[in-house]
Write a protein that binds this DNA or RNA. Structure first.
Length: 420
DNA sequence: TCTGGGGTCCTAGGACCC
DNA sequence: TCTGGGGTCCTAGGACCC
């Protein structure tokens, strides 16, 4: 059996954790630059606030309904997520962290059917007690079915947060009540096609023949079809493969024009990407930088350039040299830039880097230096030590006008409790 | 006026090899 | 009248996920 543990309204729940006065109030969390709604509490959902809805459209509603508004605080959410996953790992050796707010767990050796459900409630209680985040848990023989179960656990109060699809009959009812668009693996494009074919629920989908599904919806469609019938296709992946590409990009808080301002942003992104690269023990064989000007697509300046490295590297210092060179090629004087990004590609394990006869870089020295930089930043905090290129006026930084403190990761942000 | 950011996988077709 | 068989690699496009 597989359990999917899903944190309820995760970002909104993180904000509530240190601010209990938000309980019962509508809470929303906004994307970078406070642009779109990316998380909503149940109260906010009940007001009809949509996922991804632009914040400026909602200004009046926010004021009228006294909606609590937060800018994204990914450092806080990442740390809370880590704590949730740590609790989960105490309950099973087989945990797959699927996203910042979800994990699959394999449940083995539990007496069926009561055992799984009781165990899931113990897990949910432990997460609430140890971290303070509410979760919903779905249990079923496959991941795709566990997804449907967790959805029911969240939407239907009678489950009390845990939905176990133990029997074929229970699974059949769940599939009949599950709109096809809600199935894991069926997205925006496939759903209308399926509905046009008369497939409006997950149950309708499994009535199609395997051959038909394979022919029209490819191998992935067939796997989904199998999983919905309880035939296992996706196991637990405890050690997800290293990333094949790493992208860091941001829309600027305000447009910037000078080379030094744009390069400062690009240097910041490059350093972030390089640190991620080192964390997974890889080196990048190429770097691409891109910039976007202000305005809409016809007439908007877009520039991008990819450079191949003679020797794959994970050194921030070396990658910065290529980033700067690429930016010099695409930078145009007089443009107002609104967005930039860095993409690292051709990623290989660091142990497989092919050296060059004509190499001029002291790679061993770079490597030791980066190890020290990473160690210092791990202990002393994000960007405690960095290259000079990353520091400056920070004109490009996103506007986050509703940012909460980093309660759990910054000494200066720790809550002070005073006795009256 | 204003709308985020970061990934993966599959397939088809073309170029090329023997 | 008639022209094999088997493979790799790369890219673009389309789909999906959070």
């Amino acid at each position: 059996m597989y359990a999917l543990v899903d944190c309820n309204n995760f970002f909104a729940s993180c904000e509530r954790l240190f601010n209990p006065s938000l309980n019962g109030r509508p809470v929303v969390v906004l994307s970078g630059n406070d642009g779109c709604v990316i998380a909503r509490s149940n109260e906010a959902k009940a007001l009809g606030i949509g996922m991804g809805q632009p914040a400026f459209e909602l200004r009046e509603l926010f004021a009228r309904e006294k909606v609590a508004i937060f800018s994204s605080n990914h450092i806080l959410y990442g740390d809370i997520s880590r704590r949730v996953m740590e609790v989960l790992s105490q309950f099973s050796p087989d945990v797959e962290v699927y996203s910042i707010d979800e994990a699959f767990i394999r449940l083995n050796g539990l007496p069926m059917p009561e055992g799984c459900e009781i165990y899931a409630r113990v897990i949910a209680d432990a997460v609430m007690r140890c971290v303070g985040i509410p979760v919903s848990i779905g249990i079923a023989p496959t991941k795709t079915l566990a997804k449907i179960a967790s959805h029911r656990a969240k939407k239907q109060p009678r489950y009390g947060g845990v939905c176990y699809l133990a029997t074929p009959d229970q699974r059949a009812i769940a599939l009949m009540e599950c709109p096809i668009a809600d199935v894991w693996g069926v997205g925006r494009r496939l759903a209308p096609r399926l509905i046009a074919e008369g497939v409006s629920t997950a149950w309708d989908y499994i009535q199609l023949s395997r051959e038909h599904v394979r022919r029209h919806y490819t191998i992935e469609g067939e796997r989904t079809w199998s999983e919905l019938q309880g035939i296992l296709c996706y196991g637990i992946d405890e050690h997800p493969a290293s990333r094949q590409s790493i992208t860091v990009s941001r829309t600027f808080g305000q447009s910037v024009s000078t080379f030094s301002d744009v390069y400062e942003a690009v240097a910041d992104f490059t350093a972030t990407a390089a640190a991620r690269l080192r964390r997974q023990g890889s080196a990048a064989g190429s770097i691409m930088i891109f910039v976007k000007g202000r305005g809409c697509s016809p007439g908007r300046y877009v520039g991008a350039l990819q450079l191949m490295l003679p020797v794959a590297s994970d050194s921030t210092i070396e990658l910065l040299q290529y980033a700067r060179r690429a930016l010099m090629s695409v930078y145009r004087n007089g443009e107002a830039y609104k967005k930039a990004g860095v993409m690292l590609g051709n990623i290989i394990p660091r142990s497989q880097v092919q050296l060059s006869l004509f190499d001029t870089v002291d790679r061993d020295k770079h490597h030791r230096l980066m190890q020290v930089v990473d160690a210092v930043n791990k202990q002393a905090g994000y960007r405690a030590i960095h290259t000079a290129a990353e520091a400056g006026r920070a004109e490009w930084k996103a506007q986050s006008n509703h940012l909460s403190p980093c309660y759990t990761t910054s000494f200066s942000d720790i809550m002070i409790v005073k006795a009256e």
